[in-house]
Design a protein around this nucleic acid. Structure first.
Length: 572
RNA sequence: GGGCGUGUAGGGUAGAGGAUUAUCCUUUCGGCCUUCGAAGCCGAUGACCCGGGUUCGAAUCCCGGCACGCCCGCCA
């Protein structure tokens, strides 16, 4: 257990004992206060209410009854709060020895022996990933990394929509348009070169009824299980996916499992879902044969309450297959999380209702994000109002290269290219996770390429500075003696380092991953302040202890960057 | 029309009942490279959408507005 958790437990025990001693009733929370007056605080307002006495008096009385123990150094009552200060021995020695001992593993919670599935990205394989949806892989991957540190056995998954009109149109376009008919996109990658055929096919379908009929017939053959059409569609989807994977790979996102939607048609799961749903009391049938669920009782009203799950000809719909997909996932994992665009909210609600009707004992946990838009409005590939993720990556890496080249003449070209990739991609990932997923996000180049202040490169820079000191120091003894680390900047830094575990827990369990970059900024900022105010290499008797603190900071920054899927270069 | 979400300094953002002072970044203005990397540090200016209510106490909860985003297909 982390030192902060030990401290928290000591506080909980001490307050519980003190309350028993004075006959106080009620419950209390322990919080990290916003002021510097304490390391942990217990607001006494709830207790005061239960006892019908003024909070300030209650706090004073409890404070005087508290028996200090273990990690605690002092307690005081102020404005109705109990303020606990951690003993410097526990804080300094405890935190630093834990970091030195666990290294990369610092901040990992014990294994929960639970399997959790995080589905993310799952974009339609009909074109390149654009910035509008770029939050999905970055949020999903970061959440997965946080959950791993929370002790879960995490599997990430991409649900490939290889069924339906979109992929059939794409396939028709690839197979039927002359190779040079489509306008060049300027990029050789599959997803970019193929999207031109997708656009072309869409255009031809609109203007030429013959094309439209051909595509419709292809779609019918696909749904009838025509092996040739199915394998043709599968081929195009796979080619497209290869391009998407390349993009994901370049931002450090790798998924464990790719599940194909067509699988649930082939194995009959979707049909079974239809049969089960038909038997439910919520099921109804239209005159022409289409089936639906009436979700009025589930709090879904108006036009939305009718949830259609078969076509009039009895074939399944995307949503039907989605139910089968989720039943399958829920059978394999203890928890199932899906990172979804906000346009999926209603669909997700309907999915949950359907699962409830089928008496599923577990439920998927959706996590929604708002789309990224451009200053000129919503992104649209068709209108050309779009920024592709691949282009953003190139720009950001190129910008990082210029920045490095401007300040480091000593590095080789190869090394500069290597570092600029890490820095450029780090800037993108950081810039996206730093904002609460449900907030609207307007993409601006000036913010995406901001390498100062609250940015990814800021953390990487601090890490590189720490590495630089350690490089110059050579070998030294690890010292965690509190009497050697008494400067206010040292204490502030150590306090920040000690919070890592609780931040991981809040980020993973509470699914609030945006607190991770904020925490990283706090640590980096505390380190930079320490750096300019406290000499390390020429500090005589404090040298070893300070170097040890630098080493601990480097480890924590490295772990935070890892959680964010960002690289931690030793120099930049 | 209905549903869900979001409104915090010039721009962005944290806080989701409590501590005479609402976090952090950016912009603007001013300072710091003659010791470990200035992608840094220090200082100044500047904000809780509007109106009611609940509470000892509201940026936070409730009601009513307003603005923005997304959805309301036998599409995926």
């Amino acid at each position: 257990m982390g030192i902060m958790n030990s401290f928290k437990e000591d506080v909980r025990d001490a307050v519980t004992d003190a309350m028993a001693k004075i006959g106080a009733t009620g419950t209390f929370d322990i919080e990290i206060p916003s002021t510097d007056a304490a390391d942990l605080a217990v607001p006494c307002f709830g207790i005061a209410k239960a006892m019908r006495r003024p909070p300030a008096d209650v706090a004073k009385e409890i404070a005087s009854a508290v028996h200090l123990k273990g990690t605690m150094s002092s307690v005081s009552a102020l404005n109705g709060y109990l303020n606990f200060i951690m003993s410097s021995d526990a804080l300094i020695s405890g935190t630093m020895s834990e970091i030195l001992e666990k290294k990369d593993g610092y901040g990992y919670l014990p294994s929960k022996n639970k399997k959790i599935n995080v589905e993310h990205t799952s974009t339609n394989p009909t074109g390149p990933i654009h910035v509008g949806r770029a939050r999905n892989p970055i949020i999903g991957d970061t959440l997965a990394r946080c959950l791993e540190r929370c002790g879960y056995d995490v599997t990430t998954e991409y649900y490939v929509n290889d069924v339906g009109k979109q992929v059939v149109i794409l396939t028709w376009g690839i197979n039927n348009s002359p190779k040079d008919a489509a306008e060049k996109e300027g990029r050789e990658k599959n997803d970019h070169s193929m999207v031109a055929f997708y656009r072309l096919a869409n255009k031809m379908m609109e203007s030429d009824p013959k094309v439209s009929e051909e595509i419709s017939s292809m779609l019918r053959r696909f749904e009838d299980g025509d092996a040739e059409v199915i394998s043709s569609v599968r081929r195009t989807t796979e080619m497209m996916l290869a391009g998407l994977k390349e993009t994901l790979d370049s931002i450090g996102v790798e998924l464990d499992v790719y599940t194909w939607e067509s699988r649930y048609i082939e194995n009959g799961d979707a049909k079974r879902v239809v049969e089960d749903l038909k038997r439910s009391k919520y099921a109804g049938k239209e005159d022409d044969g289409a089936w639906y669920l009436d979700l009025e009782e589930f709090g879904v009203h108006g036009n939305n309450k009718k949830f259609t799950f078969t076509r009039s000809d009895g074939t399944t719909l995307y949503t039907t297959r989605d139910i089968a997909y989720h039943i399958d996932k829920l059978s394999k994992y203890d928890r199932v999380i899906g990172v979804l665009g906000e346009d999926q909210k209603l669909g997700s609600k309907q999915l949950l209702c359907a699962l409830q009707i089928l008496s599923s004992e577990k439920m998927p946990e959706p996590m929604f994000y708002s789309f990224v838009s451009l200053p000129e409005g919503k992104m649209s590939t068709r209108k050309g109002v779009v920024v592709y993720l691949d282009d953003l990556i190139d720009e950001s890496v190129e910008y990082a290269y210029k920045e490095i080249k401007a300040r480091r003449e000593d590095l080789s070209e190869e090394k500069m290219r290597y570092i600029s990739k890490i820095v450029g991609i780090g800037a993108i990932r950081y810039n996206i996770v730093r904002i609460q997923p449900e907030k609207q996000f307007v993409f601006k180049w000036s913010e995406a390429l901001n390498f100062d202040g609250n940015s990814g490169p800021f953390l990487q820079y601090s890490h590189a500075r720490a590495c630089s000191i350690l490089r110059k120091a050579g070998s030294f003894r690890n010292v965690t003696d509190p009497s050697k680390l008494t400067d206010e900047y040292e204490i502030k830094l150590i306090k920040s380092l000690s919070k890592f575990e609780s931040v991981m827990e809040a980020a993973g369990e509470g699914r609030k991953i945006h607190i991770v970059p904020a925490y990283g900024h706090e640590v980096a900022s505390a380190f930079n302040q320490f750096y300019v105010n406290v000499p390390v290499l020429n500090s005589g008797a404090s040298r070893d202890a300070r170097l040890t603190l630098v080493e601990c900071t480097k480890t924590v920054l490295n772990n935070i960057l890892d959680c964010l899927g960002m690289g931690a270069p030793e120099e930049m």
